[in-house]
Design a protein around this nucleic acid. Structure first.
Lengths: 358, 358
DNA sequence: CTGAAAGCGCTTACAG
DNA sequence: CTGAAAGCGCTTACAG
């Protein structure tokens, strides 16, 4: 309706636009008398600076884009929540850019870039070289969570963890290899002989790493991965995939899941099929979402601390803003094995629990 | 870094700024030849219109503010997800404004308004009259979800559903009274004699309505609410509150919960205490989050469809944009009883299930 | 259909 | 410390 601008305030206070502007930016550099006059005029008028105009000039919006997919699972929604809080504390706001499917982030991300965000966090989809290049050109830091930039436009080679192209974005990932090794060791120690992996049909980067990690760790002990099940999109995807996996002629006796949500599906399916956990089936998740610790589940999982990831995101953004030329950095967040009740204790040396529960 | 502006494109294409601008706005009104020249120049340069500048002039940002609290529970995160999708489909983006605690939304909301959002959706905190007034003055539609504007600045009178002050925002709420009645009826029919309510310690509007609805429905049948437990903030709040409630000297034999998350806590606590559900304890939730239908839970609950709410949010925004003077509207979203396995079937007339599961 | 010009609301050297 | 002026990147009547 009736917008109150800096001019209205200036007029009412009997000062220039510049003075009003200074009061609302570098508060200092304006005399106390002027300052008071401006402030009371602004209050009387209900004036608030227009961030669009300010951002246009300063070339700084205090907006951070977040490219996410469906934030329906616990891990993602806690991540968004935690990141939003951390940014709010620093006077920044989150602009949501939703990526459909698991495809390229380009479209969603470009839409957010048009608002001149100061930085972008990518927690979904594939970061194409084109998108990387554009972000680099407009000079905004990009932090990838749970992924690295795609190697090639056409077909990212998932066998190669680190793309050969020069990095154009910082990456933060769980130490998926270590997590998979912990899971494999615990499963084997618990006597599992037929170990399966449960991932998504649309394999994201971390999913692939966890599967490969499991396969490699098993191989190192002379074992092969017995089966891999893939979760289709949809509400009951994990449950359905688990049902199929556990109904196979020779069902697995141990499953490592790409995340806790998938593991919950396995637990539900096991219950529905009357399979005893952990005696007949051991289950391990990834993430350690709050629900994993619920007395009704007590899911053994790999703890991947969100706060640590968020802190690192913020640190990388700041670092790159300070020095745009710094070499791109890949950070592995350390993970911990949380032994609970969905796995058997080893018969040999005791299971290594590195975390004390509250 | 090197920003590409409309001027660069105009220069390269040998046309005026105005022509470039027209190509990127009302595509029509520019000759095909010019149009092509502009487009190829823009592509060569990698030009994209600056939304800050465009929004400043048009007084339209295509940004919608969403005031939310902790989006850690399933209902809220699906709501955010669904709303973001619906907005994206209409070319709008979500700007997150986090409200701390359950207090006034003012600070978070004002911060978002500074970016000249086209509308605001409030799904957390208390909408004060001051905040309402400001939104009305700047002419942006506000849609409240699960709440109505606070009556008085100091102490909102929760006994009064509809504040006497003139509404300055549209509201969308579940039909909490109907939901509570369905729950009460089912509990009573199932033979419950000691019925309790589980809500939050910081009572939000819908929480209060649900509690009052339960109390009133029980009273109508000559029964009194036996107890009310309140969930403290924190991860295990619901579980802890349920543990206390169920450990009382004379524990309830039926619990209606403010939402499904709370109900899950009750289920976990019952299991931990060895209380049989539904034989010794009947449990009813609210929302019908996907997890409620899991085979391991099969929680009886009140279905509160998110898609319906989101559609209504969009409709209210559009309606008020079209006619700012229209009277504020309070919409009650119909709810349905989903009878699953955490309640006993009635001994009298059969339980009324109005929903068929897929 | 196209361009020159004014202006959206603000900030920031530049003088004083 | 304060103000006049130019300008951020774009759009939109206004002429032609």
């Amino acid at each position: 309706m009736e917008r109150v601008t800096i001019r209205d305030v200036a007029e009412r206070a009997g000062v220039s636009n510049a003075t009003v502007s200074r009061v609302f930016s570098d508060a200092h550099a304006v005399s106390p008398v002027m300052r008071d006059r401006v402030i009371s005029a602004a209050e009387a008028l209900g004036y608030r600076p227009n961030m669009l105009a300010r951002s246009l000039i300063r070339a700084k919006t205090n907006l951070v884009a977040l490219a996410v997919g469906e934030t329906k699972n616990a891990y993602d929604s806690i991540f968004v929540d935690t990141l939003a809080d951390a940014l709010a504390e620093r006077g920044k706001h989150l602009l949501l850019a939703k990526v459909r499917g698991g495809g390229p982030v380009d479209e969603a991300l470009m839409g957010a870039l048009d608002y001149q965000v100061d930085a972008a966090v990518v927690a979904a989809g594939t970061m194409t070289p084109e998108a990387c290049a554009r972000c680099a050109r407009v000079g905004i830091p990009v932090v990838l969570c749970g992924r690295v930039p795609a190697t090639l436009p056409a077909e990212p080679d998932l066998e190669e963890a680190v793309p050969p192209l020069p990095f154009l974005a910082d990456s933060i990932l769980a130490d998926n290899g270590a997590g998979a090794r912990m899971a494999a060791d615990l499963l084997i120690r618990g006597g599992c002989r037929r170990i399966a992996y449960l991932g998504r049909s649309h394999r994201a980067f971390s999913d692939s790493e966890r599967e490969r990690g499991l396969r490699d760790s098993l191989a190192a002990q002379g074992m092969a991965l017995q089966a891999t099940a893939r979760i289709a999109a949809g509400a009951d995807g994990a449950y359905d995939a688990a049902l199929r996996l556990l109904s196979a002629p020779e069902p697995p006796d141990g499953v490592f899941c790409m995340n806790d949500d998938a593991a919950m599906g396995v637990l539900q399916a096991a219950q529905a099929l009357g399979i005893a956990v952990p005696d007949e089936l051991a289950v391990i998740g990834f993430d350690n979402i709050p629900m994993a610790a619920w007395p009704g589940f007590r899911l053994t999982t790999i703890d991947y601390p969100i706060s640590r990831t968020v802190e690192t995101v913020i640190a990388r953004i700041d670092a790159r803003l300070a020095d745009p030329a710094r070499p791109p950095q890949v950070t592995r967040i350390p993970v911990r094995l949380m032994v609970r009740d969905t796995t058997r204790r080893g018969t040999g040396r005791p299971a290594v629990t590195s975390h004390k529960e509250t």
